[in-house]
Each structure stands twice: as structure tokens, then as C-alpha cells.
């Protein structure tokens, strides 16, 4: 990045009211640090305890999604000028652009998993409060753990707590991976 772009980046982050932006590996320690920083910041900028808790809760699930589900491995070449290191790299952007918070995440996902995940999010987005509760309870009660010890409840929980539709995008990168972006709004 040329030095003169730094101010441009600053302005963009200012316009977006960025709270935390991070690109890199989401380790357990990083997760702890981000949660600590956000808890302190929320205590200053957010008066409503219940919104603070919601943001924190949704952030926990978003971060743990990144931690458990990052699938990119190795470096691949997109074109002659650009090679992309996908080694468990993710992006996280937390902001408060207006009277709501936004948590955006991005990570690599294997192409073969895209359709299943899309239909899962679409299904969640089509449910109302009661429907989400029923789905949550039935998976909690019947579901098994995945081999990563996750319960398959994260996205449903995010939808329940944010009370908003989950926005998503899958950007194809090459024949193996796509970049999966999620945007969760909370207010």
C-alpha cells in the first residue's frame, strides 16, 4: 500500500465508523484480544446493556465461526500480478455506521460446501422468531457435535440475537475455493 493511501484508508474507516478491522489468522488468542477490546469499547460507546450483550454474543459466534471453519490452505495465483495466501486467513470488520452495529466477516470456503451453506442461510432467513426458536431447540436437542466440537447452531443463534436477516456473498476465487462474506446487523 502506498503511503498516501493510509489517509484514504483512515477516511474510509472513519466514514464507516469502524471499531475494529482485522485481517489475518484468527487464533484463540486473537479471539480473546478482540473480545476484550470490544467489551471495553462497548462499555464506553453503548449505553444499552442489552445491546452490548447482543453485540458481544453475536461477535463470539462470528469469531468462532472464523476460528473453526477457515479452510483456505496454501497460496494460489489468481492472475499474473496477484497471488493470494489463503492460509487460514480471515477478515473481520466491526463498525457502527449509524444507529446499528455491523459485524462483517470473510473467509475461504471449499466450493463444494457453498450450496449447502447458502441454502442453510436462506432457510434461516425465511424463518420468523418462533421458527428460529423451534429450529434452534430441535438441533440443540437432536443434533450431534461436528468433528470440530461445534454444534451447528451458530448461524441460527446469530439470526435470533440480531433479529435481522443475515446478508451473505460467496465470491468464487478459483476451482477450489470461494470467499464467503457475512454481514450481521444488530440494533
Amino acid at each position: 500500500m502506498p503511503l498516501k493511501s493510509v489517509y484514504k484508508l483512515y477516511q474510509d474507516m472513519e466514514t464507516e465508523q469502524s471499531i475494529i478491522s482485522y485481517k489475518g489468522v484468527v487464533s484463540a488468542d486473537l479471539l480473546t484480544s478482540v473480545l476484550n477490546i470490544m467489551e471495553d469499547k462497548l462499555a464506553i460507546i453503548e449505553e444499552s446493556v442489552s445491546i452490548r450483550k447482543k453485540v458481544y454474543n453475536v461477535l463470539v459466534e462470528c469469531l468462532q465461526n472464523l476460528y473453526h471453519h477457515n479452510e483456505g490452505k496454501g497460496t494460489f495465483t489468481k492472475n499474473a500480478k496477484q497471488s493470494i495466501s489463503s492460509d487460514k486467513a480471515s477478515i473481520l470488520i466491526i463498525s457502527k455506521p449509524a444507529d446499528f452495529y455491523e459485524i462483517k466477516t470473510g473467509n475461504f470456503i471449499e466450493n463444494q460446501k457453498v450450496e449447502k451453506l447458502k441454502s442453510k442461510i436462506n432457510h434461516i432467513n425465511n424463518l420468523d422468531k418462533e421458527g428460529l426458536r423451534d429450529l434452534y431447540v430441535s438441533i440443540l436437542n437432536d443434533g450431534e457435535y461436528s468433528n470440530k466440537g461445534t454444534a451447528g447452531l451458530g448461524l441460527i443463534d446469530i439470526a435470533r440475537k440480531s433479529n435481522k436477516k443475515i446478508e451473505y456473498e460467496f465470491k468464487p476465487i478459483n476451482d477450489q475455493y470461494s470467499f464467503y462474506c457475512l454481514n450481521v446487523k444488530i440494533n
Partner: peptide, 13 residues
């Protein structure tokens, strides 16, 4: 509990 994540929710059950 003041917070718990979804994987803990399963363990609680």
C-alpha cells in the same frame, strides 16, 4: 451464566 456460546449450550444440555 452471563454469556455462553452455542457449543456450550450443547454441553449444558
Amino acid at each position: 451464566l452471563e454469556y455462553f456460546n452455542t457449543s456450550s449450550s450443547k454441553c449444558l444440555l
